[in-house]
Design a protein around this nucleic acid. Structure first.
Length: 499
RNA sequence: GGUUUCGUGGCCGAGCGGCUAGGCAGAGGUCUGCAAAACCUCCCACAGCGGUUCGAAUCCGCUCGAAACCUCCA
């Protein structure tokens, strides 16, 4: 039942059928964070979007090498003041600590946040500072091809020269003329031959904390070089998918393409995928705008805009209800709504595990067909540019079927064993493996608590039998207050759940 | 100013020319000692104005409104 996977390719601005370079294998590179600040919702969105893509590709049988970098050097703080100071070192100087200490600190925070969001670690997570030789080599190739020049100890990419033989701006849809028209006059650009030229290597002043020796003297790599060097190193050339946030399209990804084409004569990746932004009041959430909500704030609820704390899974589900390509506006009501919705979906997992088929043929052919249809829809919708929102809609319909079967006296025996297995496989598979929704509290693995609860629930049931509802309700009320909810089933059994 | 998008019911959000998702909230009902959960029913929207078409939320044009990028950014 494998259908073709279609991906919206930002480069062609069209949905295209995905054809891996090597059958059965996928190489995917995604731009990770610059680690000089707290991870926030925007980082979460990008990580989750590509996590689901990673998961789905594996789910349908691909062997995937997923590379996501950590940028701990190289991003200039401010090119307009001529200082060319590295972002990491600026922050480090303020904090009076080693630059690598800052990078490590925020890298740890980032990884912790993603782990709690049930984002799988990538196959390789290369760090920019650990790939300086590769970057120097990459720059040298560009110089050798004649698309870069040295100026006062720095190396710049020669955009005009490049544009003579190739097209600069194909990803962002800009032409050189557009850029000239739109560009403002920036200070400190005397070193450049042309305003759109960008730095491949920056000469470092003595006081600059992070610097390395190179054929052009002491310095540090330019803005976009690390991704070019590291993606090619680990994935070869070209590779299948390159991803990142929409805001990286220009100039970052545009530069990556130029650097790669300039050095090697070919595009780095066949498919470009861009996730859209998380907005706050319709405005992009960004560190620089100061309107961001950090991951930590989300889970503690400590932010003026937050009405409550939200769990990582709550955040994850909220994001998956929208397509990765649309902007997603933050709001308390939307988050809460997502929380209720997710519970509805995960609540059906338990009754699902209790379903049993009848061993022969399904009696209810229409229902069987519906299940098979919904199952197919889950694949079809994921195959249609990873439409998680549509997948979730189908899963909701499945959850109704599951609950109805569970509630009916005949249970699932009107269905064949095969159909029941398919239902279980699809529902669990898509929720847990593809969407990556993990149970927030795996029930209790504490045997002692389990024993105590059994005792308590037995007592309560006895009270109920005695029609001592005052007592039974008190037990329930008190348990609820301490975060243990209990539910009486129809068959007289009682379940509990630690929240 | 240039480039790229978007405008869907109380809210969130799919939709890519005909079958008019889904969730949340709300209303009513079933089940239950009561809860909770679950199930059933109700709530038929596509910024505005033109055009193409047998047929448009979906294509085209214009108007209005919003955003991202053009400086680091997921």
């Amino acid at each position: 039942m494998q259908h073709e996977l279609k991906i919206y390719n930002s480069l062609s601005r069209k949905k295209e059928v995905f054809k891996p370079i090597n059958p059965g294998k996928v190489g995917m590179y995604v731009c990770g964070p610059t680690v000089y600040g707290e991870p926030h919702l925007g980082h979460a969105r990008a990580a989750i979007a590509f996590d689901v893509i990673f998961r789905y590709l594996k789910f349908i049988g691909y062997k995937v090498r997923y590379v996501r970098n950590i940028t701990d050097v190289g991003h200039l703080e401010d090119d307009t003041n001529g200082l060319g100071e590295d972002k990491i070192s600026k922050k480090a100087r303020l904090d009076q600590v080693e630059p690598m200490e800052v990078a490590q600190y925020y890298t740890n925070l980032y990884r912790q946040a993603l782990a709690s969001l049930n984002v799988l670690p990538p196959s390789i997570e290369p760090v920019a500072s650990g790939h300086i030789p590769e970057q120097i080599e990459s720059i040298q190739k560009i110089i050798d091809q004649g698309y870069a020049y040295e100026s006062n100890g720095s190396i710049y990419f020669d955009v005009r020269k490049y544009n003579e033989n190739y097209k600069y701006g194909e990803l962002s849809g800009r032409t050189l003329e557009d850029m000239l028209e739109g560009s403002r006059e920036l200070e400190g650009q005397e070193e450049k031959k042309f305003s759109a030229d960008f730095a491949l290597w920056k000469k470092a002043e003595v006081e600059h904390l992070m610097q390395w020796s190179s054929p052009w003297g002491m310095g540090f790599p330019g803005w976009h070089q690390e991704c070019t060097a590291m993606s090619i190193k680990y994935l070869g050339l070209p590779f299948d998918i390159h991803g990142g946030g929409m805001d990286l399209k220009f100039p970052h990804h545009e530069a990556e393409i130029s650097q790669c084409v300039g050095a090697h004569g070919c595009h780095p990746a066949n498919y470009w995928i861009h996730n859209n932004m998380v907005t706050l009041d319709g405005q992009k959430m960004a560190k620089s705008k100061g309107n961001y909500i950090s991951f930590q704030q989300m889970i503690t609820g400590e932010h003026p805009l937050l009405e409550q704390a939200y769990t990582p899974m709550n955040i994850r589900f909220f994001m998956l209800q929208a397509h990765y390509g649309s902007t997603l506006d933050f709001s308390n009501t939307a988050l809460k709504s997502a929380d209720n919705a997710m519970k509805r979906l995960t609540n059906a997992l338990k009754p699902l595990s209790l379903l049993k088929g009848n061993g022969s043929e399904s009696q209810d052919k229409a229902l069987e067909e519906k299940i098979l249809y919904l199952r197919m829809q889950c694949y079809d919708k994921m195959n249609d540019d990873f439409n998680t929102a549509e997948v979730i809609a189908n899963l909701f319909e499945m959850s109704s079927i599951i609950n109805t079967l569970h509630n009916s006296a005949t249970k699932a025996s009107i269905l064949s064993e095969t159909t029941v297995q398919l239902l279980i496989e699809t529902y669990k598979g898509f929720i847990q493996d593809v969407l990556g929704i993990a149970a927030e509290n795996e029930g209790s693995t504490d045997d002692k608590l389990d024993d105590v609860m059994k005792l308590l629930l037995d007592l309560r049931n006895q009270a109920k039998k005695d029609k001592n509802y005052a007592l039974s309700d008190t037990i329930r009320k008190e348990l609820t207050a301490m975060g243990i909810s209990i539910m009486d089933n129809k068959d007289g059994t009682t379940e509990y759940q630690v929240n």
